[in-house]
Amino acid sequence: MFDIDTYLKHIGYTGTREPTAENLRELHKKHMMTVPFDNSRNAPKGLAIWDDVDAGADVFYEALVVERRGGICHEHCGLFRAVLTEFGYDVDIISSGVRGANGEFGHDLEHMLSVVRIGDELWLADVGFAGPSFIEPVRVSQDVQSQCGFDYRVVENAPYLVLERRTRGGEWLAVYRFMLQERELTEWKAIAAGENDDPFWHWAGEMIAAGTLIYGRAYENGQLLLVGRRHLKAEDGRDETRVLAKTDEYQAAIRHILLQKA
């Protein structure tokens, strides 16, 4: 059963339990450094990944904290939302469509994240996106916000807002687009039940079922991401990519990201 004290000990958080921006930043970063992204249990499921979207914080806590496994967006989002609610934050579920390699965005319900209201400010809290993205929450603002040498901003492209990221000396690139529209878990359940006729989902399900494994985790000053054999290290404003052709090197990278011993 979900236990806030055990969760905070697990991620190494020792601060106050006030719903402040500073505490949100620390919780967000420590979660991403401690609880990896790992779709290996879910990759073969296709759109059935949404079957347990409403399983609840107890189930996600058991998998991600007690069993110390990694998870995917709705598992991370569900657990972290429960934590923020315990702290007294005003939290809503929202969704986003992720920019693909071809520059086009996925379906609006492709990814799940949270928006947190603190005073008059809105913050994106997204601990379940493999990346590269942000490791501390980002204000919903056109103001440039810097983390680990990377810049972030949220710009308008009506009817959407777009999260953009920029490497050191690089150009702004979209990460995903979203609307500040509170979503219901039943919307994702409808996808799993085959009630959504959008052809995108049939294509996406086939891609997911192809079994591409994705692992990701943040560390103090950057992020690691492994998509198939493609390894990305995002640090000091630079994205460094290489292909891990050797099996032992690939397995070692997985263990490192998942915080597993050799």
Rank of each mutant, 00 (worst) to 15 (best):
I11P: 06
A253M: 12
I4K: 01
D143S: 15
P159I: 00
D126F: 04
A262H: 09
F134A: 11
A204V: 07
V59T: 04
G205L: 09
L122S: 04
Y89R: 03
H31S: 02
S114K: 08
V154Y: 06
R229N: 11
R41M: 12
H74W: 04
A101N: 09
H74C: 10
G71L: 02
K45L: 12
Y152A: 10
D198S: 08
A245G: 05
L8Y: 00
W203V: 14
V227I: 14
F80Y: 15
G131Y: 06
E110V: 08
E75Y: 01
R69L: 05
M179A: 04
G131E: 02
R168Q: 13
K189Y: 06
N157P: 11
V59Y: 05
A262V: 03
I93E: 00
L122Q: 05
W123G: 10
E187R: 05
V162G: 15
A245V: 01
R17E: 04
D92T: 07
R230N: 06
L232H: 06
I208Y: 05
E187C: 13
K45E: 15
V243Y: 00
I72M: 10
H202W: 08
N39F: 14
E62T: 04
A101L: 13
E240Q: 13
S114Y: 05
L124P: 02
A43L: 06
R69E: 03
Y152M: 04
N23Q: 03
L79E: 01
I254A: 04
T247Y: 15
Q181R: 13
A63I: 09
Y250H: 07
L161N: 14
E220F: 06
A210W: 14
R117A: 05
A48F: 15
F178C: 15
E235Q: 02
I254F: 08
V162I: 13
S95C: 03
D108T: 13
W50F: 07
R238S: 02
I257E: 00
D108A: 09
V83Y: 12
N221S: 07
V83L: 02
E171S: 15
E110R: 00
E18Q: 06
V127N: 09
L225T: 11
L113E: 15
I191K: 06
D92W: 11
G119M: 14
L226Y: 07
G100W: 03
T186W: 09
L244P: 03
L122R: 06
F60S: 10
G169N: 05
R81T: 15
F60C: 09
L226S: 00
L64A: 11
E171F: 12
T212F: 01
V116W: 08
L124F: 12
G106N: 07
E156W: 13
V65H: 03
G119W: 09
D108F: 06
G169K: 05
Q251C: 13
K9D: 04
M33S: 01
D151I: 14
T34Y: 08
D54P: 09
E182G: 11
V243H: 01
R177K: 13
R255C: 03
Q147L: 10
N221H: 09
G106F: 11
Q260P: 04
R69F: 02
D38W: 07
N39K: 07
V91K: 13
T6H: 14
Y176C: 12
G205P: 08
Y250I: 00
V175N: 08
D198Y: 07
V66H: 07
D198T: 03
R255A: 09
A101K: 06
I214H: 00
L226F: 03
E156M: 10
Q251S: 11
G131D: 01
F60I: 08
G56F: 08
L79M: 02
